[in-house]
Design a protein around this nucleic acid. Sequence first.
DNA 1: GCAGATAAGCGTATGGCATACGCAGATTTG
DNA 2: CAAATCTGCGTATGCCATACGCTTATCTGC
Lengths: 252, 252
Amino acid sequence: MNGPDVELPENVALAWGLRDRPSRGPKRSLSLDQVVAAGIQIAQAEGLPAVSMSRVASELGVATMSLYRYVPTKHDLLDLMVDTAFGPPPPPRGVDEGWRPALSRWGEGNVTALRRQPWMRHVPISGPPINPNQVRWLEYGLAALRGTGLRASERIAAIMLVSGYARSWATLTADIAEAAARTGSTPEEVGLRYWQHLATLTAPGPYPAIHELLAEGEQYDDDVDLEWRFGLDRILDGVAAMIETRAAAPSG
Amino acid sequence: MNGPDVELPENVALAWGLRDRPSRGPKRSLSLDQVVAAGIQIAQAEGLPAVSMSRVASELGVATMSLYRYVPTKHDLLDLMVDTAFGPPPPPRGVDEGWRPALSRWGEGNVTALRRQPWMRHVPISGPPINPNQVRWLEYGLAALRGTGLRASERIAAIMLVSGYARSWATLTADIAEAAARTGSTPEEVGLRYWQHLATLTAPGPYPAIHELLAEGEQYDDDVDLEWRFGLDRILDGVAAMIETRAAAPSG
DNA sequence: GCAGATAAGCGTATGGCATACGCAGATTTG
DNA sequence: CAAATCTGCGTATGCCATACGCTTATCTGC
Protein backbone atom coordinates (compact mmCIF):
# COMPACT_ATOMS: atom_id res chain seq x y z
CA MET A 1 0.00 0.00 0.00
CA ASN A 2 2.87 2.40 0.60
CA GLY A 3 6.40 2.69 -0.72
CA PRO A 4 9.67 2.82 1.15
CA ASP A 5 10.22 5.55 3.67
CA VAL A 6 12.09 8.03 1.53
CA GLU A 7 13.43 11.35 2.71
CA LEU A 8 10.48 13.25 1.32
CA PRO A 9 9.05 16.43 2.80
CA GLU A 10 6.26 15.73 5.22
CA ASN A 11 3.52 17.30 3.10
CA VAL A 12 4.57 15.39 -0.01
CA ALA A 13 4.61 12.07 1.80
CA LEU A 14 1.19 12.94 3.17
CA ALA A 15 -0.21 13.73 -0.24
CA TRP A 16 1.03 10.44 -1.62
CA GLY A 17 -0.34 8.45 1.28
CA LEU A 18 3.11 7.38 2.37
CA ARG A 19 2.67 7.89 6.08
CA ASP A 20 2.27 4.61 7.95
CA ARG A 21 -0.72 4.47 10.25
CA PRO A 22 0.72 4.24 13.74
CA SER A 23 -0.29 1.09 15.55
CA ARG A 24 -0.46 2.40 19.07
CA GLY A 25 -3.00 4.86 20.31
CA PRO A 26 -6.67 5.43 19.58
CA LYS A 27 -8.01 5.11 16.09
CA ARG A 28 -8.44 8.29 14.12
CA SER A 29 -12.00 9.43 13.79
CA LEU A 30 -11.40 11.00 10.36
CA SER A 31 -9.30 10.41 7.31
CA LEU A 32 -7.17 12.95 5.47
CA ASP A 33 -9.49 12.59 2.51
CA GLN A 34 -12.44 13.62 4.60
CA VAL A 35 -10.66 16.73 5.77
CA VAL A 36 -9.66 17.64 2.24
CA ALA A 37 -13.14 16.97 0.93
CA ALA A 38 -14.68 19.18 3.57
CA GLY A 39 -12.32 21.96 2.64
CA ILE A 40 -13.18 21.63 -1.03
CA GLN A 41 -16.87 21.64 -0.31
CA ILE A 42 -16.65 24.86 1.65
CA ALA A 43 -14.44 26.51 -0.96
CA GLN A 44 -16.79 25.52 -3.72
CA ALA A 45 -19.91 26.65 -1.88
CA GLU A 46 -18.69 29.83 -0.22
CA GLY A 47 -15.35 30.69 -1.74
CA LEU A 48 -11.79 30.26 -0.58
CA PRO A 49 -11.89 32.92 2.15
CA ALA A 50 -14.56 30.88 3.91
CA VAL A 51 -12.09 28.05 4.33
CA SER A 52 -10.69 28.49 7.79
CA MET A 53 -9.45 25.74 10.01
CA SER A 54 -12.31 26.27 12.42
CA ARG A 55 -14.84 26.29 9.60
CA VAL A 56 -13.54 23.03 8.20
CA ALA A 57 -13.46 21.50 11.66
CA SER A 58 -17.02 22.47 12.48
CA GLU A 59 -18.11 21.08 9.13
CA LEU A 60 -16.67 17.75 10.23
CA GLY A 61 -17.99 17.97 13.75
CA VAL A 62 -14.58 18.08 15.39
CA ALA A 63 -12.60 20.71 17.24
CA THR A 64 -10.37 23.06 15.31
CA MET A 65 -7.13 21.69 16.65
CA SER A 66 -8.04 18.15 15.72
CA LEU A 67 -7.32 19.00 12.10
CA TYR A 68 -3.66 19.40 12.90
CA ARG A 69 -3.48 15.67 13.49
CA TYR A 70 -4.11 15.31 9.77
CA VAL A 71 -2.38 18.26 8.22
CA PRO A 72 0.78 20.12 9.27
CA THR A 73 -0.42 23.59 8.24
CA LYS A 74 -3.35 25.18 6.57
CA HIS A 75 -1.33 25.75 3.46
CA ASP A 76 -0.70 22.05 3.11
CA LEU A 77 -4.41 21.52 3.31
CA LEU A 78 -4.95 24.02 0.51
CA ASP A 79 -2.38 22.26 -1.64
CA LEU A 80 -4.12 18.97 -1.09
CA MET A 81 -7.46 20.54 -1.87
CA VAL A 82 -6.15 21.82 -5.17
CA ASP A 83 -4.61 18.51 -6.07
CA THR A 84 -7.82 16.66 -5.33
CA ALA A 85 -10.10 19.20 -6.95
CA PHE A 86 -8.07 19.33 -10.12
CA GLY A 87 -8.76 15.67 -10.42
CA PRO A 88 -7.22 13.37 -13.00
CA PRO A 89 -6.17 14.77 -16.38
CA PRO A 90 -8.19 14.17 -19.53
CA PRO A 91 -7.42 11.03 -21.53
CA PRO A 92 -3.78 10.73 -22.59
CA ARG A 93 -2.54 10.76 -26.12
CA GLY A 94 -3.88 7.76 -27.97
CA VAL A 95 -1.54 5.37 -29.71
CA ASP A 96 -2.14 6.81 -33.15
CA GLU A 97 -2.92 10.32 -32.06
CA GLY A 98 -0.71 13.26 -32.95
CA TRP A 99 0.89 15.45 -30.34
CA ARG A 100 -1.23 18.43 -31.24
CA PRO A 101 -4.75 17.21 -30.45
CA ALA A 102 -3.39 15.57 -27.32
CA LEU A 103 -1.76 18.75 -26.05
CA SER A 104 -4.80 20.74 -27.07
CA ARG A 105 -7.04 18.46 -25.03
CA TRP A 106 -4.62 18.77 -22.13
CA GLY A 107 -4.84 22.54 -22.27
CA GLU A 108 -8.61 22.47 -22.50
CA GLY A 109 -8.63 20.17 -19.50
CA ASN A 110 -6.72 22.77 -17.54
CA VAL A 111 -9.26 25.50 -18.16
CA THR A 112 -12.15 23.14 -17.59
CA ALA A 113 -10.80 22.11 -14.22
CA LEU A 114 -10.16 25.71 -13.19
CA ARG A 115 -13.56 26.79 -14.40
CA ARG A 116 -15.32 24.03 -12.54
CA GLN A 117 -13.64 24.98 -9.26
CA PRO A 118 -12.86 28.66 -9.63
CA TRP A 119 -11.62 29.04 -6.06
CA MET A 120 -8.51 27.13 -7.07
CA ARG A 121 -7.10 30.13 -8.87
CA HIS A 122 -6.73 31.90 -5.52
CA VAL A 123 -4.56 29.23 -3.98
CA PRO A 124 -1.02 30.43 -4.53
CA ILE A 125 1.13 28.06 -6.55
CA SER A 126 3.61 26.59 -4.13
CA GLY A 127 6.18 25.23 -6.55
CA PRO A 128 6.63 22.71 -9.32
CA PRO A 129 4.07 19.88 -9.54
CA ILE A 130 4.68 17.25 -6.90
CA ASN A 131 1.31 16.04 -5.64
CA PRO A 132 -0.31 12.94 -7.15
CA ASN A 133 -2.76 14.48 -9.57
CA GLN A 134 -0.38 17.25 -10.48
CA VAL A 135 2.19 14.63 -11.40
CA ARG A 136 -0.39 12.73 -13.42
CA TRP A 137 -1.16 15.92 -15.34
CA LEU A 138 2.54 16.40 -15.87
CA GLU A 139 2.85 12.86 -17.16
CA TYR A 140 0.07 13.27 -19.68
CA GLY A 141 1.33 16.65 -20.80
CA LEU A 142 4.78 15.26 -21.41
CA ALA A 143 3.32 12.15 -23.01
CA ALA A 144 1.65 14.36 -25.59
CA LEU A 145 5.07 15.58 -26.65
CA ARG A 146 6.92 12.26 -26.71
CA GLY A 147 8.69 11.48 -29.92
CA THR A 148 8.45 15.01 -31.23
CA GLY A 149 12.17 15.56 -31.16
CA LEU A 150 11.86 18.27 -28.53
CA ARG A 151 14.42 18.19 -25.79
CA ALA A 152 13.46 17.56 -22.18
CA SER A 153 13.60 21.21 -21.17
CA GLU A 154 11.67 22.15 -24.28
CA ARG A 155 8.89 19.73 -23.54
CA ILE A 156 8.63 21.18 -20.07
CA ALA A 157 8.63 24.73 -21.35
CA ALA A 158 5.91 23.84 -23.84
CA ILE A 159 3.55 22.45 -21.24
CA MET A 160 4.31 25.35 -18.89
CA LEU A 161 3.31 27.58 -21.75
CA VAL A 162 -0.02 25.87 -22.12
CA SER A 163 -0.82 25.54 -18.44
CA GLY A 164 0.27 29.09 -17.71
CA TYR A 165 -1.92 30.44 -20.44
CA ALA A 166 -4.83 28.28 -19.31
CA ARG A 167 -4.45 29.63 -15.83
CA SER A 168 -4.29 33.25 -16.95
CA TRP A 169 -7.31 32.77 -19.09
CA ALA A 170 -9.39 30.92 -16.53
CA THR A 171 -8.46 33.53 -13.94
CA LEU A 172 -9.51 36.44 -16.10
CA THR A 173 -12.83 34.95 -17.10
CA ALA A 174 -13.59 33.81 -13.56
CA ASP A 175 -12.77 37.26 -12.18
CA ILE A 176 -15.17 38.78 -14.66
CA ALA A 177 -17.84 36.22 -13.94
CA GLU A 178 -17.55 36.87 -10.22
CA ALA A 179 -17.65 40.62 -10.69
CA ALA A 180 -20.80 40.11 -12.72
CA ALA A 181 -22.39 37.93 -10.07
CA ARG A 182 -21.48 40.44 -7.39
CA THR A 183 -23.08 43.35 -9.21
CA GLY A 184 -26.02 41.37 -10.51
CA SER A 185 -25.07 41.92 -14.12
CA THR A 186 -23.74 39.80 -16.93
CA PRO A 187 -20.11 39.15 -17.86
CA GLU A 188 -20.75 41.06 -21.08
CA GLU A 189 -21.81 44.11 -19.12
CA VAL A 190 -18.75 43.87 -16.92
CA GLY A 191 -16.54 43.68 -19.99
CA LEU A 192 -18.30 46.63 -21.56
CA ARG A 193 -17.92 48.66 -18.41
CA TYR A 194 -14.23 47.88 -18.36
CA TRP A 195 -13.73 49.17 -21.88
CA GLN A 196 -15.69 52.26 -21.04
CA HIS A 197 -13.55 52.95 -18.01
CA LEU A 198 -10.47 52.41 -20.09
CA ALA A 199 -11.79 54.83 -22.67
CA THR A 200 -12.50 57.45 -20.05
CA LEU A 201 -9.11 57.14 -18.43
CA THR A 202 -7.08 57.10 -21.62
CA ALA A 203 -9.05 59.85 -23.33
CA PRO A 204 -6.83 62.74 -22.24
CA GLY A 205 -3.52 60.95 -22.74
CA PRO A 206 -1.42 59.55 -25.55
CA TYR A 207 -2.72 56.01 -25.88
CA PRO A 208 -3.00 55.51 -29.63
CA ALA A 209 -2.94 51.72 -29.59
CA ILE A 210 -5.65 51.52 -26.96
CA HIS A 211 -7.78 54.04 -28.79
CA GLU A 212 -7.37 52.09 -31.99
CA LEU A 213 -8.45 49.01 -30.12
CA LEU A 214 -11.49 50.70 -28.68
CA ALA A 215 -12.40 52.10 -32.08
CA GLU A 216 -12.65 48.63 -33.52
CA GLY A 217 -15.20 47.91 -30.85
CA GLU A 218 -15.45 44.36 -31.98
CA GLN A 219 -14.58 42.92 -28.61
CA TYR A 220 -17.90 43.71 -27.00
CA ASP A 221 -19.72 40.69 -28.29
CA ASP A 222 -16.88 38.28 -28.62
CA ASP A 223 -17.14 34.65 -27.78
CA VAL A 224 -14.64 34.25 -24.98
CA ASP A 225 -13.95 30.63 -25.81
CA LEU A 226 -12.89 31.70 -29.28
CA GLU A 227 -10.38 34.07 -27.77
CA TRP A 228 -8.98 31.33 -25.59
CA ARG A 229 -8.71 29.01 -28.57
CA PHE A 230 -6.91 31.70 -30.51
CA GLY A 231 -4.13 31.89 -27.96
CA LEU A 232 -3.91 28.15 -27.56
CA ASP A 233 -3.63 27.68 -31.30
CA ARG A 234 -0.86 30.25 -31.45
CA ILE A 235 1.09 28.32 -28.83
CA LEU A 236 0.56 25.08 -30.68
CA ASP A 237 1.60 26.72 -33.93
CA GLY A 238 4.79 27.89 -32.32
CA VAL A 239 5.49 24.46 -30.91
CA ALA A 240 4.72 22.90 -34.27
CA ALA A 241 7.21 25.18 -35.98
CA MET A 242 9.84 24.11 -33.48
CA ILE A 243 9.08 20.44 -33.97
CA GLU A 244 9.43 20.85 -37.71
CA THR A 245 12.75 22.56 -37.26
CA ARG A 246 13.96 19.72 -35.07
CA ALA A 247 12.71 17.17 -37.56
CA ALA A 248 14.57 18.91 -40.38
CA ALA A 249 17.82 19.10 -38.45
CA PRO A 250 17.75 16.57 -35.59
CA SER A 251 19.86 17.36 -32.57
CA GLY A 252 22.72 15.02 -31.91
CA MET B 1 -4.23 68.13 -13.04
CA ASN B 2 -7.28 65.88 -12.96
CA GLY B 3 -9.99 64.96 -15.41
CA PRO B 4 -13.73 65.27 -15.09
CA ASP B 5 -15.43 63.44 -12.24
CA VAL B 6 -16.42 60.28 -14.04
CA GLU B 7 -18.37 57.45 -12.52
CA LEU B 8 -15.27 55.42 -11.84
CA PRO B 9 -14.81 52.99 -8.96
CA GLU B 10 -13.22 54.63 -5.97
CA ASN B 11 -9.99 52.68 -6.12
CA VAL B 12 -9.49 53.38 -9.81
CA ALA B 13 -10.05 57.10 -9.38
CA LEU B 14 -7.58 56.97 -6.51
CA ALA B 15 -4.96 55.22 -8.57
CA TRP B 16 -5.26 57.79 -11.33
CA GLY B 17 -5.09 60.71 -8.94
CA LEU B 18 -8.60 61.82 -9.81
CA ARG B 19 -9.76 62.56 -6.31
CA ASP B 20 -9.89 66.28 -5.68
CA ARG B 21 -8.09 67.34 -2.58
CA PRO B 22 -10.82 68.57 -0.24
CA SER B 23 -10.48 72.19 0.59
CA ARG B 24 -11.89 72.09 4.08
CA GLY B 25 -10.30 70.39 7.02
CA PRO B 26 -6.73 69.92 8.15
CA LYS B 27 -3.99 69.15 5.68
CA ARG B 28 -2.99 65.56 5.25
CA SER B 29 0.27 64.66 6.81
CA LEU B 30 1.06 62.06 4.19
CA SER B 31 0.45 61.44 0.53
CA LEU B 32 -0.91 58.32 -1.08
CA ASP B 33 2.44 57.85 -2.76
CA GLN B 34 4.17 57.78 0.58
CA VAL B 35 1.83 55.10 1.85
CA VAL B 36 2.32 53.02 -1.27
CA ALA B 37 6.08 53.49 -1.15
CA ALA B 38 6.20 52.37 2.46
CA GLY B 39 4.24 49.25 1.58
CA ILE B 40 6.58 48.47 -1.29
CA GLN B 41 9.62 48.95 0.86
CA ILE B 42 8.37 46.53 3.48
CA ALA B 43 7.32 43.99 0.88
CA GLN B 44 10.68 44.19 -0.81
CA ALA B 45 12.66 43.94 2.40
CA GLU B 46 10.63 41.39 4.34
CA GLY B 47 8.17 39.84 1.94
CA LEU B 48 4.50 40.38 1.31
CA PRO B 49 3.27 38.76 4.54
CA ALA B 50 5.12 41.44 6.49
CA VAL B 51 2.92 44.07 4.90
CA SER B 52 0.18 44.66 7.42
CA MET B 53 -1.65 47.90 7.89
CA SER B 54 -0.11 48.39 11.29
CA ARG B 55 3.35 47.64 9.95
CA VAL B 56 2.98 50.17 7.16
CA ALA B 57 1.59 52.72 9.57
CA SER B 58 4.39 52.32 12.05
CA GLU B 59 6.88 52.64 9.21
CA LEU B 60 5.36 56.02 8.47
CA GLY B 61 5.09 57.05 12.08
CA VAL B 62 1.31 57.24 12.09
CA ALA B 63 -1.44 55.21 13.70
CA THR B 64 -2.85 52.20 11.90
CA MET B 65 -6.24 53.69 11.24
CA SER B 66 -4.78 56.79 9.68
CA LEU B 67 -3.99 54.78 6.58
CA TYR B 68 -7.66 54.38 5.88
CA ARG B 69 -7.81 58.08 5.08
CA TYR B 70 -5.66 57.25 2.08
CA VAL B 71 -6.81 53.83 0.99
CA PRO B 72 -10.25 52.20 1.19
CA THR B 73 -9.00 48.68 1.93
CA LYS B 74 -5.75 46.85 2.24
CA HIS B 75 -6.34 45.16 -1.05
CA ASP B 76 -6.50 48.49 -2.81
CA LEU B 77 -3.17 49.33 -1.28
CA LEU B 78 -1.71 46.11 -2.62
CA ASP B 79 -3.02 46.90 -6.09
CA LEU B 80 -1.44 50.31 -5.96
CA MET B 81 1.80 48.81 -4.72
CA VAL B 82 1.89 46.45 -7.67
CA ASP B 83 1.11 49.18 -10.14
CA THR B 84 3.84 51.38 -8.78
CA ALA B 85 6.40 48.62 -8.38
CA PHE B 86 5.86 47.35 -11.89
CA GLY B 87 6.89 50.77 -13.04
CA PRO B 88 6.72 51.99 -16.61
CA PRO B 89 7.07 49.53 -19.48
CA PRO B 90 10.27 49.23 -21.50
CA PRO B 91 10.62 51.50 -24.55
CA PRO B 92 7.78 51.18 -27.04
CA ARG B 93 8.13 49.93 -30.57
CA GLY B 94 10.33 52.26 -32.54
CA VAL B 95 9.11 53.81 -35.75
CA ASP B 96 10.99 51.38 -37.95
CA GLU B 97 10.98 48.48 -35.59
CA GLY B 98 9.13 45.25 -36.32
CA TRP B 99 6.43 43.87 -34.05
CA ARG B 100 8.52 40.94 -32.97
CA PRO B 101 11.46 42.60 -31.24
CA ALA B 102 9.04 45.05 -29.67
CA LEU B 103 6.81 42.34 -28.24
CA SER B 104 9.83 40.37 -27.19
CA ARG B 105 11.20 43.33 -25.28
CA TRP B 106 7.79 43.79 -23.72
CA GLY B 107 7.77 40.20 -22.52
CA GLU B 108 11.28 40.48 -21.16
CA GLY B 109 10.20 43.60 -19.35
CA ASN B 110 7.48 41.64 -17.64
CA VAL B 111 9.84 39.04 -16.23
CA THR B 112 12.39 41.66 -15.32
CA ALA B 113 9.84 43.61 -13.33
CA LEU B 114 8.58 40.51 -11.56
CA ARG B 115 12.09 39.35 -10.84
CA ARG B 116 13.10 42.68 -9.41
CA GLN B 117 10.14 42.71 -7.02
CA PRO B 118 9.34 39.06 -6.47
CA TRP B 119 6.72 39.76 -3.82
CA MET B 120 4.43 41.01 -6.58
CA ARG B 121 3.70 37.49 -7.73
CA HIS B 122 1.84 36.87 -4.47
CA VAL B 123 -0.59 39.72 -4.93
CA PRO B 124 -3.65 38.16 -6.49
CA ILE B 125 -4.60 39.61 -9.87
CA SER B 126 -7.75 41.56 -9.31
CA GLY B 127 -8.95 41.90 -12.89
CA PRO B 128 -8.03 43.35 -16.24
CA PRO B 129 -5.41 46.13 -16.27
CA ILE B 130 -6.89 49.43 -15.12
CA ASN B 131 -4.27 51.22 -13.04
CA PRO B 132 -1.96 53.76 -14.65
CA ASN B 133 1.17 51.73 -15.19
CA GLN B 134 -0.81 48.64 -16.07
CA VAL B 135 -2.57 50.64 -18.76
CA ARG B 136 0.74 51.97 -19.99
CA TRP B 137 2.01 48.41 -20.30
CA LEU B 138 -1.16 47.52 -22.13
CA GLU B 139 -0.64 50.42 -24.51
CA TYR B 140 2.91 49.43 -25.35
CA GLY B 141 1.99 45.79 -25.75
CA LEU B 142 -0.79 46.65 -28.15
CA ALA B 143 1.42 49.17 -29.90
CA ALA B 144 3.86 46.39 -30.69
CA LEU B 145 1.09 44.65 -32.62
CA ARG B 146 -0.29 47.63 -34.51
CA GLY B 147 -0.51 47.21 -38.22
CA THR B 148 0.01 43.46 -38.12
CA GLY B 149 -3.46 42.70 -39.42
CA LEU B 150 -4.45 41.00 -36.19
CA ARG B 151 -7.91 41.78 -34.93
CA ALA B 152 -8.50 43.59 -31.67
CA SER B 153 -9.32 40.46 -29.69
CA GLU B 154 -6.34 38.72 -31.24
CA ARG B 155 -3.95 41.45 -30.24
CA ILE B 156 -5.27 41.21 -26.71
CA ALA B 157 -5.00 37.45 -26.65
CA ALA B 158 -1.44 37.69 -27.90
CA ILE B 159 -0.27 40.00 -25.18
CA MET B 160 -2.15 37.97 -22.56
CA LEU B 161 -0.21 35.02 -23.84
CA VAL B 162 3.08 36.75 -23.32
CA SER B 163 2.29 38.30 -19.97
CA GLY B 164 0.75 35.11 -18.63
CA TYR B 165 3.77 33.12 -19.62
CA ALA B 166 6.09 35.72 -18.15
CA ARG B 167 4.22 35.54 -14.90
CA SER B 168 4.27 31.76 -14.76
CA TRP B 169 7.92 31.74 -15.47
CA ALA B 170 8.87 34.45 -13.04
CA THR B 171 6.77 32.76 -10.38
CA LEU B 172 8.41 29.41 -10.84
CA THR B 173 11.95 30.73 -10.79
CA ALA B 174 11.24 32.99 -7.83
CA ASP B 175 9.68 30.11 -5.89
CA ILE B 176 12.78 28.06 -6.51
CA ALA B 177 15.08 30.91 -5.60
CA GLU B 178 13.23 31.47 -2.36
CA ALA B 179 13.25 27.79 -1.49
CA ALA B 180 16.99 27.86 -2.07
CA ALA B 181 17.48 30.88 0.12
CA ARG B 182 15.36 29.32 2.84
CA THR B 183 17.35 26.10 2.91
CA GLY B 184 20.69 27.77 2.40
CA SER B 185 21.30 26.00 -0.89
CA THR B 186 21.42 27.00 -4.53
CA PRO B 187 18.57 27.03 -7.04
CA GLU B 188 20.35 24.23 -8.89
CA GLU B 189 20.28 22.06 -5.79
CA VAL B 190 16.59 22.79 -5.28
CA GLY B 191 15.88 21.81 -8.87
CA LEU B 192 17.91 18.64 -8.52
CA ARG B 193 16.10 17.71 -5.34
CA TYR B 194 12.80 18.22 -7.09
CA TRP B 195 13.72 15.82 -9.86
CA GLN B 196 14.93 13.30 -7.33
CA HIS B 197 11.67 13.48 -5.44
CA LEU B 198 9.77 13.11 -8.68
CA ALA B 199 11.87 10.08 -9.55
CA THR B 200 11.24 8.48 -6.17
CA LEU B 201 7.52 9.08 -6.30
CA THR B 202 7.00 7.93 -9.87
CA ALA B 203 9.30 4.92 -9.62
CA PRO B 204 6.63 2.41 -8.69
CA GLY B 205 3.96 3.69 -11.08
CA PRO B 206 3.34 3.98 -14.79
CA TYR B 207 4.92 7.32 -15.67
CA PRO B 208 6.77 6.59 -18.90
CA ALA B 209 6.95 10.18 -20.11
CA ILE B 210 8.33 11.42 -16.80
CA HIS B 211 10.85 8.59 -16.67
CA GLU B 212 11.94 9.38 -20.18
CA LEU B 213 12.36 12.99 -19.14
CA LEU B 214 14.40 12.05 -16.09
CA ALA B 215 16.54 9.71 -18.16
CA GLU B 216 17.63 12.54 -20.40
CA GLY B 217 18.90 14.26 -17.31
CA GLU B 218 19.84 17.28 -19.30
CA GLN B 219 17.75 19.67 -17.27
CA TYR B 220 20.02 19.68 -14.25
CA ASP B 221 22.42 22.25 -15.55
CA ASP B 222 20.17 24.23 -17.81
CA ASP B 223 20.33 27.93 -18.16
CA VAL B 224 16.91 28.99 -16.95
CA ASP B 225 16.90 32.08 -19.12
CA LEU B 226 17.31 29.89 -22.15
CA GLU B 227 14.22 27.95 -21.16
CA TRP B 228 12.25 31.14 -20.79
CA ARG B 229 13.42 32.35 -24.19
CA PHE B 230 12.40 29.05 -25.71
CA GLY B 231 8.80 29.49 -24.63
CA LEU B 232 8.70 33.13 -25.59
CA ASP B 233 10.05 32.34 -29.04
CA ARG B 234 7.40 29.67 -29.50
CA ILE B 235 4.69 32.20 -28.70
CA LEU B 236 6.18 34.70 -31.09
CA ASP B 237 6.47 32.02 -33.77
CA GLY B 238 2.83 31.21 -33.35
CA VAL B 239 1.84 34.85 -33.54
CA ALA B 240 4.07 35.29 -36.57
CA ALA B 241 2.35 32.42 -38.33
CA MET B 242 -0.99 34.03 -37.66
CA ILE B 243 0.15 37.38 -38.93
CA GLU B 244 1.37 35.77 -42.13
CA THR B 245 -1.97 34.06 -42.57
CA ARG B 246 -3.76 37.38 -42.13
CA ALA B 247 -1.40 39.06 -44.55
CA ALA B 248 -2.05 36.38 -47.17
CA ALA B 249 -5.83 36.59 -46.81
CA PRO B 250 -6.76 39.91 -45.20
CA SER B 251 -9.95 40.00 -43.22
CA GLY B 252 -12.67 42.26 -44.52
C1' DG C 1 -12.62 87.76 12.06
C1' DC C 2 -15.80 84.52 13.34
C1' DA C 3 -19.22 80.45 12.97
C1' DG C 4 -20.17 76.45 10.93
C1' DA C 5 -18.74 72.84 8.02
C1' DT C 6 -15.62 69.47 7.00
C1' DA C 7 -11.84 66.50 7.10
C1' DA C 8 -7.56 64.37 9.52
C1' DG C 9 -5.56 61.56 12.87
C1' DC C 10 -6.30 57.97 15.67
C1' DG C 11 -7.82 55.37 20.32
C1' DT C 12 -10.64 51.75 21.14
C1' DA C 13 -13.10 47.72 20.23
C1' DT C 14 -14.76 43.71 17.56
C1' DG C 15 -14.50 39.57 15.58
C1' DG C 16 -11.80 37.00 13.07
C1' DC C 17 -7.49 34.04 12.17
C1' DA C 18 -3.51 30.16 12.49
C1' DT C 19 -1.47 27.60 15.54
C1' DA C 20 1.66 26.38 20.04
C1' DC C 21 1.17 23.68 24.11
C1' DG C 22 -0.15 20.28 27.10
C1' DC C 23 -3.55 17.27 29.19
C1' DA C 24 -6.95 13.36 29.59
C1' DG C 25 -8.33 9.34 27.88
C1' DA C 26 -8.12 5.59 24.32
C1' DT C 27 -5.61 1.91 22.34
C1' DT C 28 -1.97 -1.22 21.53
C1' DT C 29 2.32 -3.72 22.62
C1' DG C 30 5.12 -6.48 25.61
C1' DC D 1 -1.69 -5.46 33.31
C1' DA D 2 1.77 -1.75 32.71
C1' DA D 3 4.23 1.12 29.70
C1' DA D 4 4.19 3.41 25.53
C1' DT D 5 2.02 6.06 22.25
C1' DC D 6 -1.33 8.42 19.85
C1' DT D 7 -6.00 11.04 19.55
C1' DG D 8 -9.03 14.75 20.31
C1' DC D 9 -9.24 19.04 21.91
C1' DG D 10 -9.52 23.09 25.58
C1' DT D 11 -6.99 26.96 26.26
C1' DA D 12 -4.18 30.68 25.14
C1' DT D 13 -1.23 33.75 22.30
C1' DG D 14 -0.47 37.04 19.17
C1' DC D 15 -1.58 38.32 15.02
C1' DC D 16 -4.89 40.59 11.57
C1' DA D 17 -8.40 44.06 8.99
C1' DT D 18 -11.35 47.34 9.93
C1' DA D 19 -15.94 49.76 12.05
C1' DC D 20 -16.99 53.61 14.89
C1' DG D 21 -16.76 57.90 16.91
C1' DC D 22 -14.14 61.53 19.22
C1' DT D 23 -10.98 65.46 19.17
C1' DT D 24 -8.71 68.84 16.81
C1' DA D 25 -7.12 71.38 12.81
C1' DT D 26 -8.31 73.88 8.83
C1' DC D 27 -11.07 76.26 5.41
C1' DT D 28 -15.35 78.78 3.57
C1' DG D 29 -18.83 82.06 3.66
C1' DC D 30 -20.62 85.66 5.99
